[in-house]
Design a protein around this nucleic acid. Structure first.
Length: 214
DNA sequence: GGCCAGGACACCA
DNA sequence: TGGTGTCATGGC
């Protein structure tokens, strides 16, 4: 089964997911996408929405406002997204990094993946989410569902790493950010419906607490 | 009451 | 280099 075929099947059965905007232009919305990418780390999007709503109520949805608001205040507002102290620190650090580009527009135009990965709190998935959904660059986002689903389909190995899996997708799909955008969203949608984690070994004494799950 | 969610990082052997 | 602990809320 080809990756593009899987994409076509998912798109035809689930329909477009309408995740983050892909209008190509840079707007204040793009900063919200960056914030969302950090807030959603190991967190359901429903909780992220609550945190984003709190930030919007306080009108803290721009780079300038994020820079001008103290960390404690941000932590209070993003509390529903969990890990709020860590995430507040990450948001402030990320904002300081973006500031070195002058503005969000310039950051999104010029940012490179390797630079992003050096920022504290920005790991591979968050970096790719920002590159793809905020900057519109063709960087495929891998998450736990991607790993589980495609290894269970027998298309990849169970122990495949993030970078290897990302290259697998990027080398077997047209280099089109619109496809990457929709594909990742479709994978997450499918994962939520049918792909819960389970122990690798049914006899594992740790049961569902076993980390070796795929 | 436990599991899970659109992870990342520090620490240790 | 790989394994483990920590961060934490809210829905089911």
């Amino acid at each position: 089964m080809k990756l593009l075929k899987v994409y076509d099947i998912l798109l035809s059965t689930s329909g477009p997911q309408n995740w983050w905007p892909m209008d190509g232009g840079f707007s204040p919305k793009e900063w919200e996408v960056c914030i969302g990418a950090i807030l959603t780390q190991n967190t359901s999007w429903n909780n992220v929405k609550k945190a984003l709503d709190n930030l919007k109520k306080e009108n803290i949805v721009s780079l300038e406002k994020t820079l001008g608001t103290n960390e404690k205040k941000i932590a209070e507002l993003i509390r529903p997204s969990g890990y709020y102290n860590q995430k507040a620190k990450k948001l402030k650090g990320f904002a300081e990094f973006v500031k070195t580009f002058g503005n969000v527009n310039n950051f999104l135009k010029n940012i490179e993946r390797d630079q992003l990965l050096k920022v504290n709190g920005i790991g591979p998935e968050t970096a790719d989410s920002i590159l793809l959904y905020a900057a519109g660059k063709a960087s495929f986002v891998i998450d736990a569902y991607t790993k589980r689903i495609f290894s269970r389909m027998g298309m990849t190995g169970k122990e495949i790493g993030y970078e290897e899996l990302r290259k697998f997708f990027e080398q077997n799909l047209p280099r089109d950010s619109r496809i990457y955008n929709e594909y990742h969203a479709l994978i997450v949608d499918l994962g939520k419906k049918v792909c819960k984690p389970k122990p690798l070994c049914e006899k594992c004494p740790l049961g569902r607490k076993c980390k070796k799950i795929i």
